[in-house]
């Protein structure tokens, strides 16, 4: 986010023009090389063999099946982690208790764990040689190399997103408005829906958007638990990998371009939310005026 309200620094306290030019050139060149060129390359490679190949690649039954599975995993993971985020943020932001900072750190844990290890955890639990492997086999339930494993891995890697957005937001807002509602006779549930939720809705949406992006794009964790069975346990990122490894580059990039388009939409929504909340913050910043 930028700070457009800040007046341009006076000439005495900024760098000489050539330094400014140099810094700007270095920054833009770096971003061009690492962000813009790859972005362009995705679409260039996707359409290199023509629109026909592109369309065929993204309407391929296996591709459609992969899209469906990806959306399904996200549709499981996002609502679960949204609920978790709200619940955890309420406990952490509104109450004082021992072990609070430990809990906050634990919520961040999945960010620190390599996605491959996240996948491994579930293989160790539910795989053929895992803790529950024999029991699951006896019940004829498949978790690893099946859809439940993919959902679990996706849930694991996206646990922190919503909670991380909401905790600082709700801590900053404090509890005065909730207390005011209680004094006026509102119950706990009414207070949450009518006071807390409207106050955190943008932060919540922001967290959900980031969570969705990660859920749709997760590769490492899902790759470990998936088994790569086409049409059954293949998510879209995994499908991209298979096509690429089979040297079907145009098809791989066609599917990749779908994911990229989605990433761009996420960025756009994210930017809109940031602008919106920045605008909201400005008038209320004059609290004491």
């Amino acid at each position: 986010m930028t700070a457009p309200s800040r007046p341009a620094p006076a000439a005495t306290v900024t760098e000489p023009p050539w330094v400014r030019g140099l810094l700007l050139a270095v920054a833009l060149l770096f971003l061009l090389l690492f962000l813009v060129v790859p972005l362009a390359a995705v679409f260039y490679e996707a359409f290199r063999k023509g629109a026909g190949v592109y369309l065929a690649a993204i309407t391929d039954p296996y591709a459609l099946e992969a899209i469906r599975l990806t959306l399904f995993a996200a549709a499981c993971a996002v609502p679960l982690n949204m609920l978790f985020g709200v619940v955890a943020a309420w406990a952490i932001a509104k109450f004082e208790f021992r072990g609070k900072s430990v809990l906050v750190t634990l919520i961040d844990l999945p960010f620190a764990v390599s996605p491959v290890i996240a996948g491994l955890l579930f293989v160790l639990l539910f795989g053929a040689q895992g803790w529950f492997g024999p029991w699951l086999k006896a019940q004829d339930i498949k978790v690893i190399f099946a859809v439940p494993g993919i959902v679990l891995a996706t849930v694991f890697v996206t646990v922190p997103f919503v909670a991380r957005e909401l905790i600082p937001l709700m801590q900053a807002q404090g509890s005065e408005q909730e207390e005011a509602a209680l004094v006026l006779g509102a119950g706990g549930w009414v207070t949450f829906w009518r006071i807390t939720l409207p106050n955190i809705k943008w932060g919540l949406l922001y967290g959900v958007v980031l969570c969705t992006a990660r859920a749709l794009g997760e590769f490492g964790a899902v790759s470990v638990v998936s088994g790569h069975v086409r049409g059954l346990t293949n998510t879209l990122p995994l499908h991209v990998e298979i096509l690429y490894n089979e040297y079907q580059f145009a098809a791989a990039f066609a599917c990749a371009s779908l994911l990229t388009l989605f990433a761009l939409v996420i960025l756009a929504i994210k930017t809109l939310i940031e602008r919106r909340t920045a605008r909201q913050r400005r008038p209320s910043s004059g609290e004491t005026a």
Partner: peptide, 27 residues
């Protein structure tokens, strides 16, 4: 606190930011 029938005016007012003046008073 809900049933005490007290009116409380907070130091920083704690007005509901997303409600109009009317809705704040009507809450």
């Amino acid at each position: 606190v809900r049933d005490r029938q007290v009116g409380f005016v907070f130091q920083h007012y704690a007005l509901f930011q997303h409600m109009t003046v009317f809705e704040n008073i009507a809450f």
